[in-house]
Simulated assay, not measured.
Amino acid sequence: MNSSAAYLRLCDALMENSPALLATDQLLRDTLTLSSGNPGKLIRARLVLAAADAHGLEEGPAERLACAVEYFHIASLLLDDLPCMDDAWTRRGRPCAHKLYGESSAILGALAFINRAYALTGFVFASHPAEIRLQATACLDACLGPAGLVGGQAADLSFAQSDRSAREVAMIAARKTGSLFWLAVYFPALLGAPSQKELHALKALCVYWGLAYQAADDLQDALLNAFESGKTAGRDRALTRPNLAHAIGVPATQARIARLMEQSRRVVERLGATSQRWGYLGGFHREFVEPMVCAVAA
């Protein structure tokens, strides 16, 4: 399947599986419809779809798993944009949901997406062995809870009280951005029963991707305006939030992104040499990750 067809397939799936179909309150339904109907690059969902296809998951479950990971991401964005968090005005070129439909609807919308994502994940793994179901559940807990995304967001909000070092910036990026990449890779990979050595390499790859992706986002916030980036810009400096470009400067951030891309390529090559089943990672890196990250870092 070509890239455009896969993207359209995911856009349709996000609407078909959206919790908006079950919402009776108009403001909540509008919030959910706006959020699921205004997708970004769908980088994580595309990764899930590519991995699921490679590991033999049928089309329907593969789409539901991709939607689950994307819904977790959408929920995090709805919460990130709130006045008590980043106080953003625009997201993906449109007014944020809380600006259009209210803060309470945005919060409830995030909860609805999280609930739907957990349900979809359960549906996908229901027919698989108990060991795989337990591994998937443990991964969710680690990636989304205080050890992962939630903890990373908390550290993000209290960054001004930290040492504001590049190390702290990277730790937060790994927990916030790297965790969702790990979900996108690990869930489908479970179906292929990876070895511990392969899991270690996969985890390293997700850390490198997550750090590079977040560093590119930091550059956007520091260098671009809202029209260019599609979202409210300059919030990191205004709110004293973690931003690698502010911590070490733009040239050093660009150099770090280049190094992370090289580390990613090495891991992809190593996994590809281990087994052909990881070949999709190389294609995904070349087609999506590297062009997207390097375009910002150039």
Results as ranks from 00 to 15, higher is better:
A66G: 11
Q153G: 08
Y208E: 15
G93M: 07
G230K: 05
L244P: 08
D236S: 09
I257F: 04
R92H: 06
N115V: 03
K197Q: 14
A50L: 11
A166M: 07
D141Q: 15
C96H: 04
D156P: 11
K176T: 01
Y71K: 04
F181N: 01
S36R: 00
A110L: 03
M15E: 13
A106N: 02
N17T: 11
A136M: 08
L239Q: 14
R46Q: 10
H73I: 02
M292A: 15
G60T: 12
S229L: 15
L78C: 07
R116D: 04
L134K: 08
T121M: 11
L14Y: 06
A173K: 04
Q26V: 15
L180H: 04
S18K: 06
D53C: 08
C139K: 14
R241A: 13
R44C: 08
A88Q: 02
L111M: 14
A204M: 12
L140P: 01
G192I: 01
L47M: 14
A160E: 15
P83C: 02
V268G: 11
G122Y: 07
A68L: 02
V48H: 02
A142C: 05
D25R: 10
E198D: 15
C84Q: 13
W89T: 10
T31D: 03
S158V: 12
L149M: 13
A252V: 03
A23M: 08
S165Y: 12
C96F: 00
K203L: 13
L140Y: 05
F227L: 12
A154Q: 13
H285S: 10
R94M: 14
A170C: 14
A193F: 12
A189L: 09
T240P: 00
S36D: 02
E262W: 01
R270N: 11
A66W: 07
L65N: 05
L157N: 02
I114S: 00
K203I: 05
N243C: 14
T24H: 14
A273L: 14
L108T: 07
M261A: 03
R175M: 14
E269Y: 01
A138M: 09
A226E: 15
D236R: 08
C139Y: 11
P291L: 09
A138Y: 08
L32Q: 00
L157H: 06
H55S: 04
V250K: 07
N115M: 06
M292K: 13
A68G: 02
R259F: 07
F288L: 12
L157I: 15
L260R: 03
F72L: 08
R175L: 10
G56N: 11
R167Y: 06
V267K: 04
A106Y: 02
D53K: 10
A238S: 09
A97Q: 09
A68V: 01
A136K: 01
K41V: 02
K41P: 01
Q196C: 06
G178A: 10
V268T: 12
D163N: 13
G145D: 09
L32A: 06
C84F: 07
Q254S: 02
T177F: 09
Y101K: 00
G37W: 03
E262Y: 00
K41F: 01
L271Y: 09
P129N: 10
A45G: 15
F159K: 10
A160F: 10
L32P: 07
P129F: 02
L100E: 07
M1S: 11
D156Y: 08
S229W: 10
A273S: 14
S76Q: 05
G145P: 02
G178E: 04
G249W: 09
Q196L: 14
F113I: 04
R235F: 08
D12P: 00
H128Q: 11
